[in-house]
């Protein structure tokens, strides 16, 4: 009987993230699809009991845990040792988890150590006739592929937003603690903590309902022949403040900072979406002044409802990709949207 190992790590408050709960939904479905498979839950963190209790009624046959100060932090050497120990105990065929910076760093290495394989950034995992397959994207979300692998264990990290989070009443889980032998050399790295985004303004909000995309058009000369960077900044910040939307930028806009041109001061490479930036997932996306820029093509792949404001009615980069294209001056429209938001 194959074992599906559901792998999770705790957050700093010892709970599981939304992405982790989404992966649990997928793990349960996969176990069911595989018929005779067995679901095992494995959690690592400073103290995993709270997290294990929160999913106690998920139907797992066993709960494994690695706890301790060394595992409260996200670090390759200790995480790899912990996951290796959990896998050696559970002997899984498939290891399923939610995508996170912590797991993305460590899983491929552990998989290789165990003679298995790993796929990060999966958007779907399913079993058909006993055979497991995943879907993931190649060439910056341009080509979608479904693939199967022979090697086991097969680690799959599911992108957030791929499934609905598993909703649970919780309970009391009996966690079997798995010992991890940590050689001293595995603590050559110490984690100091987290650093907030540069600048004063929080503009990246992965959980926001709306992704607001600013294109290079905001910094270009407007109808009066002048650029209005300060206006652009205040309009965009005002909108972000009122809607709590997450801010994305096109590569051109972010790159402008390297050319000595005036830029939006709160925009950094971290905001970049598309080619070499992030591929965010939000229910809605509004792009402005992005004509000829990439967000429509790639950065929008996982935005459900998409609208664009653009001066060119023939913009081929919004046609067929946006649901609605407003042919209008984004400065004027967004000012009015802000005024309406103010009133409401």
């Amino acid at each position: 009987m194959d074992t599906v190992l559901y792998l999770a790590h705790t957050q700093s408050d010892e709970t599981l993230s939304k992405g982790a709960l989404e992966a649990l939904t997928a793990a349960k479905e996969l176990t069911a699809q595989l018929g005779s498979a067995n679901l095992v839950v494995a959690i690592l963190g400073g103290d995993v009991q709270t997290a294990a209790d929160s999913v106690a009624d998920c139907g797992a046959s066993k709960f494994l845990g690695v706890s301790g100060e060394a595992f409260a932090q996200s670090r390759y050497a200790t995480d790899a040792a912990a996951i290796e120990a959990l896998c050696r105990t559970a002997q899984p065929a498939i290891v399923l988890c939610g995508s996170s910076s912590r797991f993305n760093r460590v899983l491929p290495g552990v998989a290789s150590r165990l003679g298995g394989c790993a796929d990060l950034h999966a958007t779907e995992v399913k079993a058909d006739g006993g055979s497991t397959s995943i879907t993931r994207w190649y060439y910056r979300q341009r080509i979608r592929a479904a693939q199967v692998r022979d090697k086991r264990p097969w680690f799959v990290a599911l992108e957030t937003g791929s499934d609905a989070p598993w909703i649970t009443a919780g309970g009391k889980a009996a966690v079997e603690s798995v010992p991890v032998a940590l050689p001293e050399s595995s603590l050559r790295t110490t984690v100091e903590g987290l650093q907030k985004p540069p600048g004063q303004t929080q503009t990246i909000r992965p959980d926001a309902d709306l992704l607001y995309v600013a294109g290079a058009g905001w910094t270009k000369k407007q109808a009066d022949g002048e650029a209005h960077i300060q206006d652009a900044e205040s309009i965009i910040l005002d909108f972000l403040g009122k809607t709590q939307a997450s801010l994305g930028g096109s590569k051109s806009l972010v790159d402008i900072s390297g050319t000595g041109q005036a830029v939006l001061s709160f925009m950094t490479h971290l905001n970049q979406i598309g080619q070499t930036g992030a591929i965010p997932r939000h229910p809605k996306g509004l792009s402005t002044c992005c004509h000829g820029e990439e967000p429509h093509a790639v950065g929008w792949r996982f935005i459900h409802e998409r609208r664009a404001i653009n001066l060119d009615a023939n913009c081929g980069w919004a046609h067929g990709k946006a649901d609605v294209l407003y042919v209008a001056d984004a400065f004027e429209v967004m000012r009015k949207v802000n005024a309406l938001l103010e009133k409401s």
Binding site: D255, I256, G258, T259, G260, H291, G292, D312, N314, C315, G316, W317
Partner: peptide, 18 residues
């Protein structure tokens, strides 16, 4: 396609900074 969209096809027309 529009003239500006033609500039984006088959490798976008671009200019390095500096």
């Amino acid at each position: 396609v529009s003239h500006q969209d033609a500039l984006l096809l088959g490798g976008k027309v671009q200019a390095p900074g500096g």
